[in-house]
């Protein structure tokens, strides 16, 4: 399942529901991304996205993961709009019979949604706001798949 939303969500509750629904899979892996204050001056984050393309891109990335690994199910939830420090930005979860498939597919989903899903983060501080620059290592991470 893919969800793109501005509303906050409870990553623990989502994971429990996902695990229950994927009962029998045996292995569930999840990753949760949280707004962090690296420099000590962050007041929040604004996430912009390309409505329509976002859902398509995430759907294609998820379909690719489902094909490459033996997965019972996978979940991607990503927020947009204004987020405060400590709030959950996104989560992925994968369920499989095999631990290795669940781990690898979760990493694959993360790598691809970092640089192939149309989201842009802007960090807001007391001094103003700056778009987060993409990192070469995020692009390089795709080459391993």
């Amino acid at each position: 399942m893919i969800r793109v939303q501005s509303e906050a969500f409870d990553a623990g509750a989502e994971l429990n529901a996902f695990s229950t629904q994927a009962a029998g899979a045996g292995a569930v892996v999840s990753f949760t991304g949280v707004v962090r204050d690296v420099t000590g001056g962050l007041s929040g984050m604004e996430i912009e996205h390309y409505e329509g393309m976002t859902e398509k891109a995430l759907g294609a990335i998820r379909a690719d993961a489902m094909q490459r690994w033996e997965l019972a199910d996978s979940l991607v939830i990503h927020r947009f709009g204004r987020l405060e420090v400590g709030e959950v930005i996104m989560m992925v979860a994968t369920a499989s019979k095999h631990r290795k498939d669940a781990f690898e597919a979760a990493e694959f989903l993360m790598d691809y949604l970092k640089s192939r899903a149309p989201f842009w983060k802007k960090e807001i501080t007391a001094d103003g706001a700056d778009w987060v620059a993409s990192k070469d290592e995020d692009e390089d991470a795709l080459s391993r798949w």
Binding site: M90, K114, S115, R116, A117, F119, W120, W131, V132, A133
Partner: peptide, 29 residues
């Protein structure tokens, strides 16, 4: 650049394209 919501190259043809989007490298996750 994305053409009709699919990533594309700058030398791609625009024939039949209805929506062109320009943006910086994506920073999701």
């Amino acid at each position: 650049v994305a053409l009709d919501q699919e990533l594309a190259e700058f030398d791609a043809p625009l024939s039949g394209v209805r929506e062109v989007a320009f943006f910086p490298p994506m920073t999701g996750g």
